[in-house]
């Protein structure tokens, strides 16, 4: 584990980006109540628990055009 901890300065930016994307998607999906498919609960789960791909899926196929 010690060796893996050595790389945390490299892992940190990756984690930060993933969190930023998830937060942007979460804020957006909480502001819009309707989606192209699925409900709010479904998209919250997808955005928060599917790393990296979750927010992408939300913005590309989930978000309804305003």
């Amino acid at each position: 584990m010690k060796e893996i901890m050595e790389y945390w300065p490299f892992l940190l930016p990756v984690i930060v980006i993933q969190v930023i994307l998830a937060v942007i998607a979460l804020v957006d999906l909480l502001r819009h109540k309707t989606y192209r498919f699925g409900n709010q609960f479904f998209w919250i789960i997808v955005v928060l628990f599917v790393q990296l791909i979750g927010p992408i899926l939300y913005f590309t196929i989930g978000k309804r055009d305003s």
């Binding site: 990756v14 980006i17 993933q18 930023i20 994307l21 942007i24 957006d28 990296l52 927010p55 992408i56 913005f59 590309t60």
Partner: peptide, 12 residues
């Protein structure tokens, strides 16, 4: 956000 997503994903 599409440009942002693209940049973020490829950065990762």
């Amino acid at each position: 956000y599409k440009a942002l997503i693209l940049l973020a994903v490829f950065f990762v």
